[in-house]
């Protein structure tokens, strides 16, 4: 049967990340830990980052939320792991521009699965779900720099 325009939102790759989240779990106590929630809907995410020499050595997450917020968290951790901090921040910026429906420069970014979330921009009520993990990541990096 046809599912309206739902397939633009719930791409197979998103549902795969939701069902089989990558990097789910916690890290050693000395990792940077940051919790963020979406107070309007109750979604909650906890990020664990290890950053050494300006590189994201490891990234894990735990949380409760909808398919979009958890898939986005899974994709985010996958995307930034092994990346330089400034690259991770660049990705976050790219991501928020993508949610605003802009078409940012992507030349030197390895976006991978993240592109699948592009359809979320057509569902304004769900943009906050998608951006939660990315905002948390920016804050986690801020925390490291403090």
């Amino acid at each position: 049967m046809s599912f309206n325009n739902l397939d633009t939102l719930y791409r197979q790759v998103i549902m795969d990340h939701y069902k089989n989240p990558r990097n789910k779990g916690t890290l050693a106590d000395d990792a940077i830990t940051l919790e963020m929630n979406n107070p309007t809907c109750g979604d909650r995410i906890q990020l664990h980052f290890i950053i050494e020499d300006d590189t994201v050595i490891d990234a894990k997450f735990e949380g409760e939320g909808c398919s979009i917020s958890l898939a986005s968290a899974s994709m985010m951790t996958q995307a930034v792991k092994g990346k330089q901090v400034n690259e991770a921040l660049e990705m976050a910026q790219y991501f928020s521009q993508m949610m605003l429906g802009q078409e940012p420069e992507t030349d030197d970014l390895e976006l991978g699965d993240i592109q699948a979330l592009q359809g979320v921009q057509k569902f304004p009520a769900r943009i906050k779900c998608a951006t939660l993990a990315w905002k948390a990541m920016e804050k986690a990096i801020d925390k490291k720099n403090e």
């Binding site: 599912f3 719930y10 809907c41 979009i68």
Partner: peptide, 28 residues
């Protein structure tokens, strides 16, 4: 199915329901 996802599917059929914590976090 997370309630946001339920509500998004319903919305795609023109049906408006509420999803979230309903301003009652202690009750949740």
């Amino acid at each position: 199915v997370h309630p946001h996802d339920t509500a998004t599917v319903l919305d795609s059929y023109g049906i408006a329901v509420r999803a979230g914590h309903h301003c009652a976090q202690p009750l949740m």
